[in-house]
Design a protein around this nucleic acid. Structure first.
Lengths: 152, 152
DNA sequence: TGACTCATGTCAGCATTCTGACATAAATTG
DNA sequence: CAATTTATGTCAGAATGCTGACATGAGTCA
């Protein structure tokens, strides 16, 4: 069965499949967000702020899987265009808590609908049990991989 | 519970978890490949060529989830450094079939060992049944998302 | 209290990838 | 057979993200 002899069989590799699924999801999200003039990172930032108002730049960066620096330039653009607000000075420490403006909330609402349609389609061929299994499996993978990071 | 009311609950979203897992996997692979002077795309290209010799630039790009243009610049570097070879002229059509050199094969061997250790760790906390379930689930997601692409 | 470590926000420079575009060859279609 | 469509390789410019670096504030520990 061309098992783990010479290389890693990409046809049966969970890692490769994970990358493929993630890539397909990102492409699908990009496709529905583009007409709204939004990128995936853009949307992720807004969604994070809706659920946890007052998040800092660094926390948003971790939540959207980009660096602080990248999130910083995005936040500057979002602030300039009136989607979010940040205090001019940090109320405590250096952390600048960010919040959605009404305009940001409206923009997020339409984006959320688009993204939800993608997620629904992604799950359309799966039973509830399969979804639960996938959820557990992904959490397990994440835990193992993060563990490694901590040890290294 | 905070179900699908206002936004998408990132804590229970399979899409978000998928992105998180993929990000963690990429970070882990980057960490083990960096000492070898390799990037993930770099490694993916070599692994693809080992399993399917003679792949073209465009086919490699699809397999590594990047654009033709990006793969093209990578291939030029790999060719310059003697990891792969491409004929100066296309034997048929415009397709330039790429092949690993012995040096490329040696380089891939060490990289494969490193990547395999990451994948083993990723699967360490999962039963065989869980792995099978995850495999099926991911394939289902990919199928649904690609379907959408075709229809759009 | 003072030294040390850690996290944050931000700037500058660099690398990587993507978008747009073009010419060419194969496949398809009428 | 001719025309259209599709796919490929490649170039140039733009956008995006990252690495490196710095100053500052908070927490820790002796």
């Amino acid at each position: 069965m061309s098992q783990d002899g010479p290389g890693i069989d990409l046809e049966t590799s969970l890692g490769y499949l994970l990358k493929e699924a993630s890539s397909a999801l990102r492409a699908a999200m990009d496709a529905v967000l583009r007409p709204l003039g939004m990128t995936v990172t853009h949307y992720s930032c807004l969604e994070l702020l809706a659920q946890r108002p007052g998040l800092s730049n660094s926390e948003l960066a971790r939540g959207a899987f980009v660096t602080r620096q990248s999130m910083n330039v995005l936040l500057q653009a979002l602030e300039r265009d009136g989607y979010v607000t940040r205090p001019a000075e940090a109320p405590v420490g250096k952390v600048l808590p960010t919040r959605l403006t009404p305009r940001g909330r409206r923009s997020l609402a339409t984006a959320t609908a688009a993204v939800r349609s993608v997620e629904v389609r992604m799950l359309s061929g799966m039973t509830q049990a399969q979804q639960s299994a996938a959820f557990t499996a992904l959490q397990s993978m994440i835990g193992s991989l993060k563990d490694q990071d901590a040890r290294g």
